[in-house]
């Protein structure tokens, strides 16, 4: 039986400094950012971390985490991260991106960053649409999914098939760790923390690129209640974007 002490992580910006989440009800970002903050505290690397804010709702990371932050244009977070890490190899470098950013406009950059084996960590929040701009279809949108740009559901013959980021990133030789988790129930949220922890560790040990794709709810754009959004992840999205660890080069070591 473990004892959990619930306190506000130091790496979360304090309320008096303007912190405090303002995401939509049921949005996954808050849980994920808090998890990241807890891990930065646990590794004691808050003051040595540079995070890259991307474009989309993920950009709010800059307002909620108490970290040095560099901004990046659409899809270029891992490039900015590469420039930082190559100059400051002792800093912990983290990109926080959505599926629109890392898997759509910036997927070329994601793949090349993985192939170069950059010692950085990417947390990609996949809510299967462009959240901030109002719920348009992204590369990860599922077949049949209704979005503002696929009002009759995504059709393969019109807009192709969903992109499975974590699986593709796992194919790159420079990737040390690639996994998909979900912000849905307690079990999955605990798995989320373990998984992100692993992705942090591969950077801290200098093993290569760490990539975590997190399925997260976007009830506002999905036109669902928060509860329905959780069910959507569990019952629908997971069947298209399955959870799992697709690459973990530390496994060989630990065996």
């Amino acid at each position: 039986m473990e004892t959990l002490v619930y306190k506000r992580p130091e790496s979360l910006l304090k309320a008096e400094k303007g912190g405090g989440f303002t995401f939509c009800p049921g949005c996954g970002h808050g849980v994920i950012l808090r998890t990241i903050a807890e891990l930065l505290d646990e590794f004691n690397i808050q003051k040595d971390t540079i995070a890259i804010a991307s474009v989309g709702c993920s950009v709010f990371m800059e307002r909620f985490l108490d970290l040095d932050v560099a901004g990046a244009s659409h899809g270029r977070s891992t490039c900015v991260a590469t420039g930082i890490k190559r100059c400051k190899p002792n800093n912990f470098v983290l990109t926080y991106q959505g599926d629109g950013d890392a898997a759509t406009i910036g997927f070329n950059e994601t793949i090349h960053t993985a192939c170069r084996g950059e010692h950085i960590t990417t947390i990609m929040i996949n809510n299967t649409n462009f959240g901030m701009t109002g719920g348009q279809a992204s590369a990860t949108t599922m077949l049949g999914q209704v979005t503002t740009t696929t009002p009759y559901g995504r059709k393969a013959e019109e807009t192709g098939y969903p992109l499975h980021a974590a699986e593709i990133v796992a194919q790159c030789e420079g990737t040390a760790y690639s996994a998909r988790v979900a912000v849905s129930d307690t079990k999955n949220i605990r798995a989320l923390k373990k998984t992100i922890k692993k992705a942090f560790e591969v950077q801290l040990k200098g093993l290569g690129y760490g990539f975590v794709e997190v399925l997260a709810g976007c009830p506002t754009n999905w036109h669902m209640t928060p509860t329905e959004a959780v069910e959507q992840i569990e019952n629908v999205i997971k069947t298209v974007h399955p959870l799992g660890v697709f690459k973990d080069i530390t496994e060989k070591e630990s065996v």
């Binding site: 270029r76 490039c79 590469t82 930082i84 100059c87």
Partner: peptide, 14 residues
């Protein structure tokens, strides 16, 4: 070139 200039940005921020 998209990547190279954004890498310059990253380096420049440090």
């Amino acid at each position: 070139e998209l990547a190279s200039i954004n890498m310059v940005i990253g380096a420049g921020t440090t």
